[in-house]
Design a protein around this nucleic acid. Structure first.
Length: 813
RNA sequence: GCCAGAGUGAUGAAAUGGUAAACAUACUCGACUCAAAAUCGAGCGCCGCAAGGUUUGUGGGUUCAAGUCCCACCUCUGGCACCA
């Protein structure tokens, strides 16, 4: 190659980013969608555009999806790789409060900044599909889906307690609390019940659980979802409360849910959650009511964090004067309230078996209650509480049986029934804040809750003077009389708009569908486009969304399936988590620690291609790794080596360049490894394989154009700018990014000569080279003839010989 | 407390049960240079002058062979809703 140019990343990257923009090579073509076409929808969890801008950790996932999408495009797939903004939520609102400007303005600025930072990295997004959850044209459909849920009876109003800071006069999320105190002002946080909109996500618990099996997700994430949904099979069993029979003779009951009905004979007391309504109903019979009431108040003022932070120490109060009747033995058992029972799970009541449950054991020990063993452990040394399986004792009719085999029978005997219970709670879907989608309903004195007619959507967020919380717990929207007061769509009488807004999760629960058809004003998504692109083939984002975002989106999707908007039952077929990039000091990148590195400066100094390559090379993709600017020089050197290889490329077509054996093998191995590794997200090893190949090519005198351009193709997804520049030198028209992905010759992956290791008792002692495919017998012979064996074991016959073809002969003496 | 993940050179790391440390950074020495940078070459787990020995958090086990599988433990990271 005659031309000797320096690798000038600034010039090259600017030039191609511009060219790609004008040539639109990354535009997703959906004019002609046919069923048989290969499609690949690859998606990043879209960012919240904060004022701080991007640090080098953010683009790691974007670069990975970019590498994958570029390879898929070269493989002949129709690729959908979009980007957008999840821009509702607190930070923009707080910015607005501070600057007294509409959050829309702040969002515009931060989006522009983010987009610029993302753009200089050279990602192949189709920006024609950019979406923003705060755009009324977008949230029209968020509101539309809410109305559909309302129509389906899945949205209801309920009084739910929130964490309330009496000094800031706002509601707080659990994460805004520190030891039960407001993170910002330190006041003790109270529980305050507010009227909320709630979505019946629990209706989908079973489906969400079962369909997990169909997903190619990391097992830990599936586990997190299973735990979040928390299905348990158990028994509902009732204990009569002594002396509470009414006129008809039936008594008040304490109904417990238990996963261990087999331990029923071991019940020595019963626990009711302090906030359970049954406690109030029993008020007149409780002799120590004052004490009980005090405990209830204490519990109420504890936040959930507080309640859980207490760790092992169990507290509770005995309800004096109250006894429950054991449903089988008819024995009297005492009744406690204790905050380790939660009203929100199961029935809110627990049957306590000190001998076979850790919490019950701790509690029984503390209050000196009887502990009655009903299962003999398989292991005689086992200590109480014994949680495992065994043989029943102290349980008439069941003694001698295995505990695992009596669940049904004992439940029946106790007059109970088997039931399935979920941990999953319905989704509290309203926020008393300004910066969110207005919930599209109207409250009418006569007609009650009336949905806004579909034709009136979107209900646009009005401009207000103050974005501050009102102090009453209501959204700032409540202060805008002109917006709040409307006619009831039904009776035309006076009505008031709902002033609660939706949580940030709403917009992100379905955005992947909007990318398929971003400009559609008639429907959430065109059914043909949905049918073609669904599901998302590959979804990448942080593991912190394992439970919340991914549960909400799956719920939302399944609802849309039920009303016929989507056909496929799951939104995200394959999921991969990005490992965080930490600061050089090993801590999270944050302004607070002063360890933030911006991509802009790295791109300036080393180039976007080096940044991309480094983030892919630095380690396993899903692992958390510390950033190290010093190490970028390694991938930069690699790119320069690739660039310099041009000097060895033979362009004269008459001159034939033969591949020597070794080069040919490494060449084919490299194609295979890079292809396989990208598919399996082993980006770091894909890069190192290319390094090995390039290091080898440096030792070779001449390189054929075909081999060089194949290398360029393999490298193109990682370093799109430099490879495009090199490609253009040999192919003035076209782009490497729409060229075809290389294939390897599977007959040329192994050298004709292999090194065989001679081991004695598993330790390496000698080695010899042999022809690839050498027979086992031949290997054995050569091993016995090796120098080490001759010198140390001559004449001795090994007790055993293990031969691993082409690799190892292990002699056992 | 529960759930999940991770412990390998100075550092980031690699390794279908089959030669541990590929690739890269840092470092040392050398070549080129008046010099420096860049580049190239050599070395680089630990002990040892060497021969050799030894090494994947700790302790056991399975196996001809263990970083990899099993059991127990320790440490770190992330998540959590004491879930009956």
């Amino acid at each position: 190659m005659a031309k000797k140019q320096v690798y000038d990343h600034k010039k090259i990257e600017k030039k191609w980013q511009k060219k790609w923009e004008t040539s639109k090579i990354y535009k997703t073509d959906d004019k002609t969608l046919k069923a048989g076409q290969k499609k690949f929808y690859v998606l990043d969890m879209f960012p919240y555009p904060s004022g701080e801008g991007l640090h080098v950790g953010h683009p790691k996932g974007y670069i990975a999806t970019d590498v994958v999408s570029r390879m898929k495009r070269m493989n002949g797939f129709k690729v959908l790789h979009p980007m957008g903004w999840d821009a509702f939520g607190l930070p923009a609102e707080q910015f607005a409060i501070k600057n007294k400007t509409n959050p829309m303005i702040g969002v515009k600025k931060t989006v522009a900044r983010f987009k610029k930072q993302i753009s200089i990295i050279g990602l192949d997004y189709d920006w024609g599909r950019e979406i923003n959850t705060t755009d009324p044209k977008y949230y029209k459909w968020t509101q539309w889906t809410f109305l559909k849920m309302f129509d389906a009876g899945l949205a209801y109003e309920s009084w739910e307690p929130i964490n309330w800071c009496p000094s800031c006069k706002t509601g707080l999320a659990n994460e805004d609390l520190e030891d039960g105190k407001c993170e910002r002002c330190g006041s003790v946080v109270e529980k305050k019940p507010l009227r909320q909109w709630v979505l019946k996500i629990t209706k989908y618990a079973d489906r969400m659980l079962n369909d997990l099996e169909t997903l190619e997700w990391p097992e830990p994430i599936k586990d997190a979802q299973r735990n979040w949904i928390g299905r348990s099979e158990g028994s509902m069993i009732s204990f009569d409360i002594e002396g509470t029979s009414d006129a008809s003779g039936s008594e008040k009951k304490i109904t417990v849910f238990t996963t261990r009905p087999d331990t029923l004979y071991g019940v020595t007391y019963v626990v009711i959650a302090p906030e359970h309504k049954l406690v109030l109903e029993l008020k007149d019979k409780i002799k120590n009511w004052k004490e009980v009431e005090k405990y209830i108040v204490e519990t109420k003022n504890k936040t959930e964090i507080d309640r859980t932070a207490e760790g092992k120490e169990k507290t509770g109060v005995k309800l004096e004067g109250i006894s429950a009747i054991h449903p089988i033995t008819k024995e009297k058992v005492s009744v406690f309230i204790a905050d380790y029972a939660l009203a929100g799970y199961g029935t809110g009541c627990v049957m306590a078996v000190g001998a076979h449950d850790t919490r019950d054991f701790d509690f029984a020990k503390k209050y000196d209650l009887e502990i009655r063993e009903v299962i003999t452990p398989a292991d005689a040394d086992a200590q109480l509480p014994y949680l495992g399986d065994g043989v029943m004792i102290n349980s008439p009719k069941f003694n001698g049986k295995k505990n695992t085999e009596i669940f049904e029978e004992i439940t029946k005997l106790a007059g109970g029934k088997r039931e399935v219970v979920y941990k999953l709670k319905d989704w509290v879907f309203s926020r008393q804040r300004y910066w969110g989608e207005p919930i599209p309903v109207i409250h009418c004195e006569k007609c009650g809750v009336v949905p806004v007619p579909y034709k009136d959507l979107p209900v646009v967020l009005p401009k207000v003077k103050s974005y501050e919380p009102t102090g009453t717990g209501e959204s700032p929207l409540a202060n805008i009389a002109s917006w709040v007061n409307v006619k009831c769509p039904k009776c035309k009488g006076p009505g008031k708009r709902e002033t609660n807004t939706m949580p940030q999760w709403a917009g992100s629960s379905w955005y992947y569908l909007r990318y398929m058809d971003p400009k559609n004003d008639k429907a959430l998504v065109d059914p043909k486009k949905e049918a073609f692109w669904s599901p998302v083939d590959f979804y990448v984002g942080g593991a912190e969304h394992a439970a919340r975002h991914l549960i909400y989106a799956r719920f939302w999707h399944k609802f849309l399936q039920d009303i016929g908007v989507v056909k496929y039952g799951e939104p995200f077929k394959k999921l991969q988590n990005v490992g965080l990039i930490m600061g050089e000091d090993g801590r999270k990148m944050s302004k607070r620690y002063g360890n933030v590195v911006n991509p802009d400066s790295i791109v300036e100094t080393y180039g976007a291609d080096s940044l991309r390559l480094y983030e892919m090379f630095m380690g396993p993709f899903d692992q958390e790794i510390s950033w190290k600017t010093d190490n970028i020089i390694g991938v930069r050197r690699f790119l320069e080596k690739v660039w310099r290889l041009q000097e060895k490329v033979v362009t004269d077509k008459k001159k034939k360049v033969d591949l020597d054996d070794t080069t040919e093998i490494i060449f084919n191995q490299t194609i295979k490894k890079v292809t396989d590794d990208i598919n399996e997200l082993g980006f770091n090893t894909a890069v190192s394989q290319m390094m090995i190949f390039v290091n080898h090519l440096e030792k070779v005198e001449n390189i054929s154009q075909a081999v060089y351009l194949t290398l360029i193709k393999l490298l193109a997804p990682f370093a799109p700018h430099m490879t495009e520049e090199i490609w253009a030198m040999y192919n003035p028209k076209g782009s490497v990014h729409v060229s075809s992905w290389p294939e390897y010759d599977s007959t040329k992956l192994v050298l004709s000569t292999v090194t065989v290791v001679v081991q004695v008792n598993g330790k390496v002692r000698d080695q010899f080279s042999a022809k690839n495919g050498i027979s086992k017998a031949e290997m054995e012979k050569m091993a016995l003839a090796s120098k080490y064996i001759q010198e140390n074991f001559a004449g001795k016959t090994p007790a055993r010989i293990i031969v691993v073809p082409n690799k190892i002969v292990n002699l056992v003496y």
